[in-house]
Simulated assay, not measured.
Amino acid sequence: MSNDILVKAVEVTKNFGSFRALDAASLEVKKGEVCCIIGPSGSGKSTFLRCINLLERMDGGAIWVNGELIGYRRDGDHLHEISDAEISRQRRRIGMVFQRFNLFPHMTALENIIEGPVQVLNEPMAEARDRAMALLDRVGLADKAGHYPSELSGGQQQRVAIARALGMRPDLILFDEPTSALDPELVQEVLDVMKDLASSGMTMIVVTHELGFARNVANTVAFMEAGKMEEVGPASQVLSMPKSTRTAEFIKAVHN
C-alpha cells in the first residue's frame, strides 16, 4: 500500500440479516485529505464508518488504516478476528464524532475531554488537563470548560465532541453527519471548526448532507447508493460534473 494512503477499504461487505448494508464498497483516502461521503438515507454511509472504527464487524473485504489491517490479523492465507484488547488499541487512533454528540452527561466539557487521555492513554492528569483546555480554546469554548452538556447548545456540545476526539491524538477522525441534529443557525459554528481541522492537515472522512462544505473543503467525494460506492472522485468533478446519472439526481435534489 502506498505510504501516502491512510485509509484503504477493499470490497467491504456488511449484512444485517438478509439486508446487505454494504456491497463491495471500496475507498482510498490519502493522509491529510478530507473525503466527504454523500448519498440518500439508508445507503450504507454510517455503516461504512462504523466498520472503519470497528463498531461493526464487516462480513467481507478488508480495511487498512495507516497500513494496519483493521479487526483481523493475517496468518498465511487465513484471517483471524483480533481480541477486544487489540480492537481497543486500534480504535484509539481513529476518532469519531457522532450525530448525537454522545458526551458523558455527568461530566463537564473539560472532564469529557480528559477522560480518554487519562484512562486509555495513561496521560498524567495535569498534562491531560492542559491539553484539554488548549483544545477547548481551539474550538472556541475555553469559557465553557466547567459547563455540563445540558448547559450547552447543540453546536457547543458537538464542538466539545470534536475536542474530545482530538484529545486522543488520532491519525484519522470520522464524522457521522455531525450537523444533522443541530438547529440550522448552529450548523456553521461546527462546520467552521471542521474546516479549521482540515486546513491543519487532519485526515477526515465526513458523512454529510452539507454539499457546500463538501464543495469548499473536501478533496474527494464519494456518492453511495444501496451499499455501493457509486462514484468516487475529486470533489469538484463529482459535485459539478458527476459521471453517474444517479449522483447527478441526488445532488440536484439536495441542492445546497
Rank of each mutant, 00 (worst) to 15 (best):
P234R: 08
L152F: 00
V187F: 03
E151A: 10
G155M: 04
S240C: 15
H78G: 15
I113T: 01
D4P: 11
A253N: 15
G212L: 09
S43A: 14
E210G: 08
D192W: 05
H255C: 14
V65N: 09
R129K: 11
L197I: 02
A126Y: 08
V207R: 02
G95L: 06
L22R: 02
L103E: 11
K45M: 04
H147V: 09
Q90I: 03
A165F: 06
S43K: 11
L136E: 03
G227V: 02
F223H: 14
A163V: 03
F250M: 08
M224P: 00
S199V: 04
W64F: 09
V97A: 04
R100Y: 10
N102L: 11
D196W: 09
S236E: 12
D77W: 06
M96Y: 03
A235R: 12
D176V: 01
T13V: 15
L186Q: 06
A9H: 01
P242Y: 04
P149C: 01
N3P: 15
D143E: 09
L166C: 02
E56M: 11
V206Q: 05
P234T: 07
P117G: 03
D171C: 05
K195N: 11
F250W: 08
Q157E: 07
A134Y: 08
D84K: 14
I162F: 05
M224T: 00
V187A: 10
P105V: 00
N256I: 11
E189F: 00
A222M: 12
P178F: 05
R100C: 13
I5T: 08
K14Y: 07
K14R: 11
K228E: 14
N122P: 02
V187M: 11
G154N: 06
L103M: 07
F175H: 12
G61A: 13
R50M: 04
L141W: 00
K30R: 14
L79T: 04
L54G: 03
K252S: 15
L121G: 06
E33V: 02
D77R: 13
I63W: 03
D176G: 09
E185N: 07
D77I: 12
F48T: 03
M1I: 13
R89Q: 11
L191D: 03
F223D: 12
T13R: 12
V232M: 13
D23G: 08
Q156I: 00
G44R: 06
H78Y: 15
G227D: 01
A126S: 15
L69N: 09
A25S: 07
Y148G: 10
E230H: 11
R92Q: 10
V206H: 06
G60P: 05
F250D: 10
S2P: 15
G32W: 01
E56T: 06
G146I: 02
S200N: 08
F104C: 07
A145R: 15
A128S: 04
K8R: 13
A161I: 01
L55W: 01
C51A: 12
M241N: 15
K228Y: 00
G116E: 05
N53G: 09
I37A: 12
T203P: 06
K195D: 15
I38R: 12
V217W: 03
A235N: 09
E177D: 05
I52Q: 08
Y148S: 11
I94N: 05
Q157H: 10
Q158E: 10
Q99A: 12
V254Q: 14
I94W: 04
V232G: 09
L22I: 01
N102Q: 15
L239W: 05
V187K: 13
I162G: 07
S240I: 05
S200V: 04
A161H: 00
